[in-house]
């Protein structure tokens, strides 16, 4: 594994790629985000704190984080399943199913919200079936979660799929030849290799879910303290021309997501390194 140490010197292109990355990142992402932070700093520290610790704001953070987390978990399981089925199995219509995965990206979020509400509202296609069972989907946190599952599913599938596709089957083969059960092979050999992309997919779906607005407002019902998501509160503040307060709520939301993403990226890199060492050893 000596190449790990000397790779810096061998390959070309670090200055240009890193330079361009940082420049573009700064122009498109960092400078505008700094503007947001500066705007929120127009409030005095006490005002700032009061804005972001207001019970309604806190309730909305909790709701956004929890629903995004649950949606991320569901997507983790079903995203892996979908990627697995699409890479490893053959069945009629596979191409079409593969293509459908991307559609949640292509559909404007507002349309997705309206369509989901049409289906899951008490008088909708599925909602009317669940209504007698006492399950309320639309206008409840469950509805928000479903909208976020819809928004997030491509993230998990599309990060796991390429890795699964490129995965060598040597190890699996060896395990099978040695008589290991299929399930054991999967959990011991395949799954560990998939942990980095799974983590990435989960993190992306989760982070996207925290901020999602367009699809959620239609299905959530927007009741304060119950189904009011944090991005809606930002809009609410803006409607009252309170730019600085809106920016403060946004900054906290941003910091939470940033922290989570950073944590997951470190975790992912760490597991990646462990994996590679294990493979090499």
């Amino acid at each position: 594994m000596t190449f790990l140490r000397k790779k810096d010197r061998v390959l070309p292109g670090l200055p240009i790629t890193l330079g361009f990355t940082v420049l573009y990142l700064s122009l498109i992402v960092l400078i505008p985000l700094v503007a947001l932070a500066i705007k929120s700093a127009e409030l005095s520290p006490a005002e700032w704190w009061n804005t972001v610790t207001n019970p309604r704001v806190v309730a909305s953070y909790k709701l956004s984080l929890l629903t995004a987390f649950y949606a991320g978990l569901v997507n983790l399981v079903f995203g892996l399943l979908l990627a697995w089925v699409l890479v490893r199995y053959k069945f009629p219509g596979k191409r079409i199913v593969d293509g459908l995965i991307d559609l949640p990206f292509a559909l404007p979020t507002a349309v997705a919200g309206i369509a989901l509400t049409t289906i899951y509202a008490p008088k909708g296609w599925v909602g009317s079936l669940l209504q007698p069972l006492g399950i309320k989907v639309a206008y409840s946190p469950l509805g928000i979660t479903i909208a976020l599952i819809f928004i997030g599913i491509p993230f998990v599938v599309r990060t796991v799929q390429p890795v699964l596709q490129d995965m060598e089957t040597d190890m699996e083969e060896a395990a099978a030849t040695l008589g290991a059960y299929r399930a054991r092979t999967f959990f011991r050999i395949v799954l560990p290799e998939l942990i980095p992309p799974l983590l990435t997919g989960f993190a992306l779906a989760f982070a996207r879910g925290i901020g999602e607005y367009g699809s959620v407002v239609f299905i959530s019902g927007n009741m304060p303290m119950k189904t009011e998501i944090a991005p809606l509160l930002i809009i609410t503040k803006l409607e009252q021309f309170q730019y600085a307060q809106a920016a403060a709520v946004a900054v906290v939301l941003l910091l939470i997501s940033f922290g989570l993403l950073l944590l997951i990226n470190i975790l992912q890199r760490w597991s990646n390194r462990r994996l590679r060492t294990a493979k090499g050893g």
Binding site: V29, K39, L204, A207, P231, F258, L262, N265, I266
Partner: peptide, 26 residues
């Protein structure tokens, strides 16, 4: 590097509402 990768991911985590707002603020 971790920081850079996380910053690249960041726009996913930014609410679409905010991503419009930042350009308005600028």
């Amino acid at each position: 590097k971790n920081l850079l990768v996380t910053l690249i991911d960041l726009p996913f985590a930014v609410s679409p509402v905010v991503s419009g707002l930042i350009y308005v603020l600028l």
